[in-house]
Nucleic acid binder design. Structure first.
Length: 424
RNA sequence: GGAGAAAUGGCAGAGUGGUCGAAUGCGGCGGUCUUGAAAACCGUUGUCCCGAUACCUCGGGACCGGGGGUUCGAAUCCCUCUUUCUCCGCCA
């Protein structure tokens, strides 16, 4: 959510910047400004009326104390019409407030100055690439065949237990999953992130805090009996820790990470290109989150990008880093880098991480602020997060790229976690 | 799941209808004293919204777990939800 101040002071700038995201903000922005104006006028009226009532009430108190019951009675009579009017104004104010907020949350975050215009994935800017190209024989198998061949991940069993998109990991498949999680967490700890093991169901407030609600409701599994939501990412609980929190500037940056299973309904987004592990309803992910000082958030973003780059390098996967264009960016992001790894048998790039700076957009919703030493005014923090990493596509790439006649070779760094060097 | 008690500022803890945004203590910040520090003493100390502004502040409004109600007036009374504690039941 953008701050009202920004929209008030820089209307044209906001509209101009959002064109980069292919978003025509003018009607919404003007609607917001109009509602804001009406809201402030209404509050002014309402406050004046309340002030008068407060004054009379105090007078009544004093009249009663001095024994002037007739005076008190006549003062009391004056309040009836005031009360009626201020009740009406309070309702109007609440309605305007709600409408204003409803419109305000529809405006996307402004893209950072470095973001290129563009329509979609084809316009993303390749920042750099790395790793060594894989050369597989012509009869190399895609991962959905490999997992059957070695009996390590069972989709049919998942369908029996739950439904499509809920695979069952078995034996070395389960161990590989666990190894990756531990590897990612250990690397994160070395980079200074505090491990958080949060609840994986959250309440409505948390859903609102990080922006999944009210719009992306259909993407989350909803536990209706208790009105909880299964988290689509650890970002939700880990970031909501700081909802309604005022930090001290010397506590910044806060660096947290969390491993959680993630649940996504992915309604209507299935097809041939999302076979096997490419898209799931439940998957594992380690997420890194930073709460940063506004003046240092882009340094934090670079730091996070190089952390994620270190992970794919250590796993020896060919990768590229893309800076998303305006049209491919999420609603909430100011700048996003996507990591893609090369999947040798599918012969395509798979997105495995998305690292973003949300600047104060998320913080404004969360009401997460910080206090600068010696300053009176609290300011909004900047929030950032990134996958480090999402497991299924990493598993897919490892299985495909490392297949040999003898079996699937486990990357060197993982062997101490798996306890075996080959899946055969 | 059943019965009872409770929820107040960063923390502890007063306050049961009227100058209460809230005593007091601790903590924090500033100062005096000191070579420095501690102690002592003095001062200060929440958040949000609206308005004014000579940018130092000033005025108004809201907030005592959340929501609703009674009243001229609510931290205080009533309803409701949530959470915590104690006892019972159940349980990994």
């Amino acid at each position: 959510m953008l701050t009202l101040n920004l929209i008030r002071e820089k209307r044209d700038f906001v509209i101009e910047r959002l064109k980069i995201k292919n978003f025509d903000a003018a009607p919404l922005v003007d609607r917001v400004l109009e509602l804001d104006l009406r809201r402030r006028e209404t509050q002014k009226e309402s406050d004046a009326l309340l002030a008068e009532q407060n004054k009379i009430s105090k007078e009544i108190g004093m009249l009663i104390k001095s024994g002037d019951s007739a005076g008190a009675e006549s003062a009391r009579a004056k309040t009836a019409s005031l009360k009626e009017e201020s009740r009406r104004l309070a309702e109007k104010l609440a309605a305007l407030d709600e409408e204003l907020r409803t419109e305000l949350v529809k405006i996307p975050n402004l893209p950072h100055a470095s973001v290129n215009p563009g329509k979609g994935a084809e316009d993303n800017f390749k920042v750099r690439e790395g790793g060594t190209a894989v050369e597989l024989p012509a009869d190399a198998l895609p991962h959905w065949e490999l997992i059957k061949k070695y009996g390590i991940i069972d989709f049919e069993l998942g369908i029996k237990l739950t439904g499509a998109g809920f695979p069952v990991y078995k034996g070395k498949g389960a161990k590989l999953e666990r190894a990756l999680i531990n590897f990612f967490l250990d690397e994160g700890e070395k980079a200074g992130y505090l491990e958080i093991l949060p609840p994986i169901v959250v309440n409505e407030d948390s859903g609102f805090g990080t922006g999944q609600l009210p719009d992306k409701e259909g993407q989350m599994y909803h536990v209706t009996a208790d009105n909880f939501y299964l988290i689509p990412t650890a970002e939700v609980p880990v970031t909501n820790i700081y909802r309604d929190v005022i930090l001290n500037s010397e506590d910044l940056p806060v660096k947290n990470m969390g491993y959680t299973p993630c649940f996504r309904r992915e309604a209507g987004s299935w097809g041939a290109h999302v076979r096997g592990l490419n898209r799931l309803h439940q998957f594992d992910k380690v997420e890194i989150v930073q709460i940063a000082h506004p003046e240092h958030s882009y340094e934090a973003l670079e730091e996070m990008v190089s952390h994620v780059e270190g992970l794919v390098r250590k796993l020896d996967l060919p990768y590229r880093i893309m800076r998303l264009c305006g049209g491919d960016m999420s609603f909430t992001s100011a700048l996003t880098y996507d990591f893609e790894v090369w999947s040798g048998a599918q012969k395509r790039w798979l997105e495995v991480s998305s690292v973003s700076n949300f600047e104060s957009f998320q913080a404004n919703r969360l009401k997460c602020r910080f206090r600068e030493k010696g300053e009176k005014q609290n300011r909004l923090v900047h929030t950032l997060n990134g996958s480090a990493l999402a497991l299924p596509r990493i598993v897919a790439a490892i299985l495909e790229n490392n297949q040999t006649k003898e079996g699937i070779r486990i990357p060197e760094v993982l062997v101490k976690y798996t306890g075996f060097g080959i899946i055969d």
